[in-house]
Write a protein that binds this DNA or RNA. Structure first.
Lengths: 138, 138
DNA sequence: CTTTACGTTGACGTAAGCGTCAAGCGCCGG
DNA sequence: CCGGCGCTTGACGCTTACGTCAACGTAAAG
């Protein structure tokens, strides 16, 4: 049970835009678009973008947010929350309040998701019942 | 435990576009847009649209699909699946296979959602820990 | 009979999220 | 030195999901 492989061991510590795009299954245009919107901000070596682990983490968060149906601007505020400075008490309290808001939102979506799954399971069962009965009579 | 109230008892059996839109918190333009894409197809009384319970059900499915981030075209195929004729065996088998595809997709999103919730909870806990320790030292 | 309210069909506008050129720069092998 | 490959920056295009007029019909209300 401890046979979990390290999922995608990072063989480098920097990546080019092509490597990042290929690995995450998006185009370089998409990556640049996220940068234009301020969701990621890679370093530069000369004019070329250099991506580090931090950028990969953020990109993973972006894509997951997209799969969950969040707009990019909202995704930006969410992942900025994770990376925000947390020095002062007021900042910590703000972060916690924002996290609570996000949690409530995510829990609502989870209810939607569970409802959809339940309906789908019922539908599937109903189809199977029809299939069995028609099969038995044939 | 049998105290479940009928949620939103339907006081009519037909509705106007304005009533439907207001009840679901969308504009009439949105409702018409869904009709243009074939997601709902209300009856007509003269030229005016008349919405029945079936349309309300479909609209609820549409909006939930949207909250889960599905494009309208995909939502159409999903709810059409629910309403599709299920007479012949081949149709039943097709419906079941499609339902399985949807279920796999929804389960994947649920993993995303649970991951996001777990990370958010960890973040919140971390913030609270920082807040407590700074509070204790003050 | 006219106003008012609510409905209708176009048709164009717009924001988000990229796709798709076009044109240029920098480095590396031959 | 020169081609090619990979990277760069625009800039325009396209699809989705509506918003927003405009112009008109119709039915009840005054």
């Amino acid at each position: 049970m401890i046979l979990l492989m390290a999922s995608r061991a990072p063989s480098h510590d920097t990546w080019t835009i092509a490597q990042i795009a290929a690995e995450f299954g998006v185009t370089h245009r998409t990556v640049r678009h996220y940068e234009e919107l301020g969701l990621i901000s890679p370093e530069r070596r000369g004019t070329a973008r250099v991506y580090r682990r931090r950028d990969r983490t953020r990109l993973a968060l972006i894509l997951r947010g997209k799969r969950l149906g969040f707009p990019l601007e909202e995704i930006r505020t969410i992942i900025d929350l994770y990376d925000a400075p947390r020095g002062k008490t007021s900042q910590l309290e703000y972060a916690i309040s924002q996290a609570r808001i996000r949690r409530v939102e995510l829990e609502a979506r989870r209810r939607d998701l569970d409802d959809a799954l339940a309906e789908l399971a019922a539908f599937e069962a109903s189809c199977r019942a029809d299939l069995d009965s028609s099969g038995l009579r044939t």
